[in-house]
Amino acid sequence: MAMAIPRVMRSASVAVLVAVVDAAVVFPGWDGWPSAAQVVAIAVVAGLAAWLPVVALLAALVLAVPGGANALLVWTGYQVGRQVVSRSGIVVAAVGSVGCLGVQLFVLSAPPGPVVSRYVIFVALPVVLGRYLAQQRRLVSAREAQRRQSRREQALHERLRIARDVHDSLGHRLSLISIQAAALEVTELPAKQREAVLELAASARQALDDLHELVGTLRDRGMPESRSLGGIDGLAAEFRATGAPVTVLREGVPAALAPAAYRVVEEGLTNAAKHAPGQPVTVSLRAEGDTLLVTVRNPLPAEHRRNANGRTGHGLAGLDERVRLAGGMFHTASSDQEFRLVAMLPLTDAIEEAEPEVPASRRRLWVVALTLTAAAIVILAGPASMLGGLGG
């Protein structure tokens, strides 16, 4: 909705500009209500060209049969070339143009030279220009998508290399330390040394778990560009199988979700299973405008409430980084009874994946240039010379 308002404003501005140009150039002798009605019709058709280009072109051709509406022909022809890609739309526009040309030549007996020139200048050329600019835009988008894919592949190769190096070096050494610490745990030792060994063994196992988590994250190349709601439901089913009651609520959520949204739910369920095993967990997915609000909350057992504020392990820290990279915000909150994990994510997952749009300033420049070109041609050629056959 937010993007539709500027589009409506642009269309209204262009419609007014086209109507003013046609009124000033084609109707120097204003004859009251008939001229006013034609100008209003020109403005309406010009405003609809952005949404219904073929219909707008056909209406412009009809309005142009008695003469005038040259700026409208330029604008609607440009929109047809820019937007229409289907063969049926092109055929309808071509048949309509040829039909109106035939009416002027064979029914109204207009001189062929000026009429054909008018159609070439005000209809054919804008269509060709619009088609050329549209193809250029698609080409630029394709090249940009190829560059993004190349950057992703390079980043993936680097991540895999780092994962291999970390696993082969630190993984091996930490595994040895963990095994040796486990052997010391079953050895008869004085109480003081035994306590230190237990702490050492626990730290070694935690370090090994953290390393495996890091390597797994670096090797996470199988993550698709988007996750479906079925993936969230499957994740919830896995946790239900372990005995944790999980409820998934959704409101206005699209079928495809960003990978970061899936990771938020996954980490929230894992966190709840670790700190509040067996407690009910509620996952909420709600779309608010162009934002996806993901919430995972669970009750806190009494023995974990005093430590709830300290739950900022590597998983949550990594999740915070992932959400920020996706253009969102992440935070956790806890009360005496409940722990809550909240993430706000853009529904159009990471801005990087969106196709680059033509800047608004460039679009306005093309609109103004086309309109001024049409006006200049009409003024230089002269309405009488372009439409002389219609009056004779």
Rank of each mutant, 00 (worst) to 15 (best):
L235E: 00
E267N: 11
V186C: 13
A255E: 15
A287D: 02
P245G: 09
D290A: 15
Q193K: 05
G252L: 14
P280I: 06
R286Y: 03
G216S: 13
A302L: 13
G268K: 01
L293K: 08
E213L: 00
G234I: 08
A244G: 07
P259F: 13
L293R: 07
A258M: 08
E213M: 07
A261V: 05
L269R: 02
E213I: 03
V283H: 01
R263L: 11
P301D: 09
S228W: 09
L285I: 10
R250L: 06
V248Y: 06
L292Y: 03
G231E: 01
A201G: 08
S203M: 08
A261N: 02
E266Y: 14
R263A: 08
R297Y: 06
V246G: 03
S226E: 07
V197M: 07
G289D: 15
G234T: 14
D233L: 06
N271Y: 04
G231M: 04
G231L: 11
T291Q: 14
Q279V: 14
L214N: 11
L235K: 08
T291W: 13
K192L: 11
V296F: 02
V281S: 00
N271I: 02
G216W: 01
G278M: 13
T242Q: 15
R240Y: 06
E188F: 02
L208F: 06
P299Y: 04
G243R: 06
R205A: 12
G289P: 03
A196F: 11
R286F: 01
A207Y: 05
R286H: 00
E213T: 09
A287R: 14
T291A: 10
V283P: 01
E238C: 10
V265S: 02
A255L: 14
A204F: 02
R227L: 15
L218C: 01
M223A: 15
A276S: 15
A302Y: 04
S284C: 06
G216C: 03
E251Q: 15
P280R: 04
